[in-house]
Structure formats: structure tokens, C-alpha cells
């Protein structure tokens, strides 16, 4: 029955959309707005996650000695640092190397700034601790801080914690946002479908009298809702992916060696989620209307 009538249901569904164009546009618009916003949070969250993973992998602890400390004193501290449990290696990163790094990196185009510092290098010697076990970072950092002569210990683990907590917040916000937006979309779609039912009430009435089954009457409206959702999802998908593709290079440049997710890496999940959500919202909207207004 469903297959034999599939074309009929589809044609009726499309007719419903076209004949009620203002509400149709409103419905598709709200689905687009919801999914674009959701997509933004989704991609933001996914990237934060990826960034967090990468930082975790390159987890290192930086230990700074006072600027005026002699190189011998520094090396003594270095051997003490390599004694700490879970430290695989303590690499010396001298203030000269660090200045050179600045010259070649961030200050490339303003070498004169670096030149003025050459005389009296304000930077500090540092050790980079490579760990055997990244989960022990805070213990190692605490132990390093206790060594006499160590001025400062910078533990990137804190950064990871921060990123994780931002990721968490973003996830919470996006779930709530999603729920609220889905709710509004469902409401608007169900109203659109309701208007469609109202304008076709005569037809529906006659269908009942000549013995159409309930599902026969319902299907066109369900399809109408699904189409609303799917069209909205497709538009939102185009907007989100185009937007992502255009801002990604700029942000990537800013992030340096931490790699963000390429469009190709996110496209599948965005497609899948948008379609599922769009059609889910559409079907829920029409389902509600059918329950409430289509007494067969």
C-alpha cells in the first residue's frame, strides 16, 4: 500500500508545501537558523576537542630559571630535574635559543626589536620536561617547583584543563540550544502543517467518507514535515560548510602548529546530524499536528 501510493503521498506533500508558501518559508527558515547555530557550536566543540587531544599529546612542562643565574647553576638544576620520577628527559632551552626563536618566529618582520634585546637578553633559561606519563604532569610540576633555584614552572596541563572545561561548557550550551531551537522549530512546523490540514479539511473529510485509511490521510502531512526539515537541513548544511571553509584558513594560521579539523573531516558528521535532526524535527512537528488536529 505504501509503495503503491508513495508517489501520491510525495506529490501531495510537495503540493502542501507550495500551496502554503509563506508558512513553508517560515518553517524552513527556522530550521535553517536552528541548524546553523547548532552547526557553529558543533564545529566549535569538535575543534576544541581536537585541539585538546593534540595539546595532550605534546604535553610538556616548562621550567624557568632566574635570568641572572649562571649556566652551571642551570645545568645543576637540569640534572635534578631529570631525576624526578616520570621525567623522560629534561631539554635545555637557553635564553639565546629562545631569543633566536622569537627572531625567526613571531618577530620575523620586526627584527629591530630583537636587536635591541641582544645586548641584555631579558629572557630566562628554561628546561622542557618530556614526560613518560602525561597524566602525572601535575605531580612532576610540583616536584620541579620545589627544586632550589627554580623560578617558575609552567604546566600546559592547566591549559588542557581549561580547554576541557570550555569544551564541556560548549557541549552543554549546544545541547540546551539544540533543545530550545528544536522545540521552536517543531512548534512552527506543526503550525504550518496544521494550516495545511485546515486548508484541506474538505478533502480530508471526503477522504474519510470514501474510506481512506488513517495512514493514507496522514502520510502526505508526514512527508510535508519531513521535506520542510530536509530542505532546511540542506540549506543549513550549505551555509555551515561554506562558512567553515572560508574562516578555517584564517583561524588555522592563528593556531600555528595545532591543527584544526579540515572540512573533509567534519562533512560526514555534519550531513548526518543535520539530516537526522532536520527530518526528525519535521516529523515530530507533523506528528504533533496529526495527533492534535487530524481526528480520523
Amino acid at each position: 500500500m505504501i509503495f503503491r501510493n508513495a508517489k501520491y503521498f510525495f506529490v501531495q506533500g510537495v503540493k502542501g508545501l507550495v500551496s502554503n508558501s509563506l508558512m513553508t518559508l517560515a518553517s524552513i527558515g527556522i530550521v535553517i537558523a536552528s541548524l546553523v547555530l547548532f552547526g557553529f557550536f558543533l564545529l566549535f566543540g569538535m575543534n576544541l576537542n581536537a585541539v585538546g587531544e593534540q595539546i595532550k599529546e605534546q604535553c610538556e612542562i616548562n621550567v624557568y630559571m632566574p635570568n641572572e643565574m649562571s649556566r652551571d647553576g642551570v645545568r645543576e638544576i637540569g640534572s635534578a630535574l631529570s631525576e624526578i620520577e616520570y621525567v623522560k628527559e629534561a631539554q635545555l632551552y637557553t635564553k639565546e635559543e629562545r631569543l633566536q626563536n622569537y627572531r625567526e618566529g613571531v618577530y620575523q618582520e620586526r627584527a629591530e626589536v630583537i636587536d635591541t634585546l641582544e645586548e641584555d637578553n631579558p629572557l630566562r633559561d628554561a628546561y622542557i620536561l618530556v614526560l613518560e606519563d602525561v597524566t602525572k604532569a601535575s605531580e612532576v610540576a610540583a616536584a620541579a617547583a620545589k627544586i632550589e633555584g627554580v623560578q617558575e614552572v609552567v604546566n600546559r596541563q592547566d591549559l588542557i584543563q581549561q580547554i576541557l572545561s570550555i569544551t564541556n561548557t560548549v557541549q552543554h550550551v549546544s545541547v540546551w540550544l539544540l533543545l530550545i531551537l528544536a522545540f521552536i522549530s517543531v512548534f512552527i512546523i506543526s503550525n504550518t502543517i496544521k494550516l495545511g490540514m485546515f486548508s484541506r479539511r474538505k478533502e480530508i473529510n471526503i477522504m474519510k467518507f470514501v474510506g481512506a485509511t488513517n495512514w493514507f490521510i496522514r502520510w502526505p502531512f508526514i512527508i510535508e514535515g519531513m521535506l520542510l526539515g530536509a530542505v532546511g537541513a540542506a540549506c543549513a548544511f550549505a551555509i555551515v560548510m561554506l562558512g567553515y571553509g572560508s574562516v578555517l584558513p584564517a583561524i588555522q594560521e592563528f593556531m600555528g602548529n595545532i591543527e584544526l579539523l579540515a572540512s573533509a573531516e567534519v562533512i560526514n558528521i555534519v550531513i548526518a546530524l543535520f539530516l537526522i535532526m532536520g527530518m526528525g524535527i519535521g516529523m515530530t512537528g507533523s506528528g504533533l499536528s496529526i495527533r492534535k488536529h487530524l481526528h480520523v
Binding site: 500500500m1 503503491r4 501510493n5 501520491y8 471526503i206 477522504m207 470514501v210 474510506g211 481512506a212 493514507f216 490521510i217
Partner: peptide, 9 residues
């Protein structure tokens, strides 16, 4: 229409 809605071919 009356035939269509009862699923006639």
C-alpha cells in the same frame, strides 16, 4: 480521488 484514496491502481 475516491478510488485513489483507497489505494486503487
Amino acid at each position: 480521488f475516491a478510488m485513489q484514496v483507497i489505494g486503487a491502481s
